[in-house]
């Protein structure tokens, strides 16, 4: 089936940016009541630049791959860049269209990221 292409399965099996950032400056936990998934997002930001950002928790292939692809693309970018980021751009990272029923899976980590960057630990 189309959705479970090698790229998504690869990021599911070997997620990039997985774990917790030591000395995190920003942190957020988001959970998805529909599937019971939970993601913890930690980031270290210095003068507006994302030095490191990681996610941990349990999720399906779509949510794990989306988090992995998103965070991988964000290391070294700025908080201002993340503020400009649209959900559609995050979905695009997956490389295949996902049905509306899975949007909440793919965007859980993104929501956690935005929440984390909006608050300071």
């Amino acid at each position: 089936m189309d959705l479970y292409r090698e790229k998504i399965l690869d990021h599911y099996r070997n997620p990039r940016q997985y774990g917790k950032v030591a000395g995190a400056t920003h942190r957020a936990v988001r959970s998805n009541p529909v599937c019971g998934d939970e993601v913890t997002l930690t980031a270290r930001v210095r003068r507006g630049t994302i030095v490191d950002v990681r996610f941990s928790g349990r999720g399906c292939a779509i949510s794990t791959a989306a988090n992995s692809l998103l965070l991988e693309s964000l290391v070294g970018t700025t908080v201002a860049h993340v503020r400009q980021l649209q959900p559609a751009a995050v979905l695009k990272l997956l490389g295949v269209p996902i049905g509306p029923a899975r949007h909440h899976c793919a965007l859980l980590g993104f929501e956690a990221l935005r929440e984390a960057l909006a608050t300071r630990t």
Binding site: M1, L3, Y4, C35, C60, A61, I62, R102
Partner: peptide
Amino acid sequence: VHAHDVAQILDS
């Protein structure tokens, strides 16, 4: 495998 992934592949 997450239950949602199982259900999605079964649905296909």
